[in-house]
């Protein structure tokens, strides 16, 4: 297959998905020609999409059976409405029947779709429970984050429920987006136009350094594919064991230590320093492999 680089950030949801999985292996469920659109957008005279902004289906990746969903950030910021959310939740239920090696969520979303905010919020809550249930059944869910909308709002929470979070340097992961914080709390709190600051708070490298993402990869669909393939091999060999009391107690400690250690911190610069990176400028320019190596990973 072609190894030509495909920019993950710029690619559409469909391009990403099709380049990520094995060629011609993707079989879509509820494809656009069935036209499951959002009646709520129609009622507000807002544009609709025939897939409601998310593509779901079955595929194989490096020969492993997977279920996969890809959110379209260019449609309403990838935001979750009733139909969009139901497709994602249905996919999790399908996973309990199909028992794929993993479910892949190509997240590109600002969270709840405001035009149908209540339906979106409830859908995300249902998706949270469904992701947890799927993983309790031994099927890992992976979040792949590298699109233009990142993973924010409820989708930021869903992403952190996933057994693996694969992010690119351009990927962003958080809860409240910089624009929301600036609007409510003022530009002094968070200047959303300060791109370097936004990157140091929500970007892939700081998320990886903090342990909020499990893997950092280049902004290339093939890099996402190769990391995903590696992880699928591992999960195919050894089934996911879901977190029990011991693991969550340990997690509690880790999060408490982090909150204390960074109690006064408002800039990712400190987190990079604590992770062993001396010069901030170096971190920003550092190739992904070098960054991972410095974090103590074998590349």
């Amino acid at each position: 297959m072609s190894t030509k680089q495909i920019n993950y950030f710029e690619a559409s949801a469909r391009t990403r998905l099709e380049a990520l999985v094995d060629p011609d292996s993707f079989a879509e469920i509820c494809p656009p020609h069935l036209r499951y659109t959002s009646p709520h957008l129609t009622r507000l005279n807002a544009p609709v999409a025939f897939d409601d902004g998310v593509i779901v289906g079955r595929a194989s990746l490096a020969g492993h059976r997977v279920l996969v969903a890809s959110q379209e950030g260019k449609f309403n910021g990838g935001a979750v409405g009733e139909v969009h959310g139901a497709k994602l939740r249905g996919l999790m239920e399908r996973a309990l029947i199909d028992r794929p090696v993993a479910v892949l969520l190509l997240v590109d979303s600002g969270g709840v779709r405001l035009h149908e905010a209540n339906a979106g919020l409830i859908a995300i809550s249902e998706l949270m429970r469904a992701v947890l249930r799927t993983q309790v059944a031994g099927i890992p869910v992976f979040a792949l984050i590298g699109g233009s909308c990142g993973a924010f709002g409820g989708m930021g929470i869903v992403s952190r429920l996933c057994a693996e979070v694969i992010i690119s340097e351009q990927g962003r992961l958080g809860l409240s987006g910089p624009e929301v914080i600036e609007t409510v709390k003022g530009v002094e709190e968070f200047d959303s136009r300060d791109r370097a600051m936004v990157w140091r708070i929500t970007g892939g490298k700081v998320r990886r350094a903090l342990g909020e993402a499990t893997h950092l990869v280049d902004d290339d669909v093939h890099a996402f594919r190769s990391m995903t393939a590696q992880l699928l091999d591992a999960y195919a060999a050894e089934q996911l064991k879901s977190a029990g009391l011991a693991e969550l107690t340990e997690r509690q400690q880790l999060l408490a230590v982090r909150a204390k250690k960074y109690a006064e911190t408002r800039d990712g610069r400190i987190i990079f320093q604590e992770s062993g990176f001396k010069e901030l400028e170096d971190v920003a320019l550092m190739p992904i492999d070098d960054f991972n190596r410095q974090l103590g990973e074998a590349v």
Binding site: G174, S176, V180, I181, V184, I201, T202, T265, R266
Partner: peptide, 8 residues
């Protein structure tokens, strides 16, 4: 809503 909480 704060930069600090987001960073954490």
């Amino acid at each position: 809503l704060s930069r600090h909480e987001e960073l954490l």
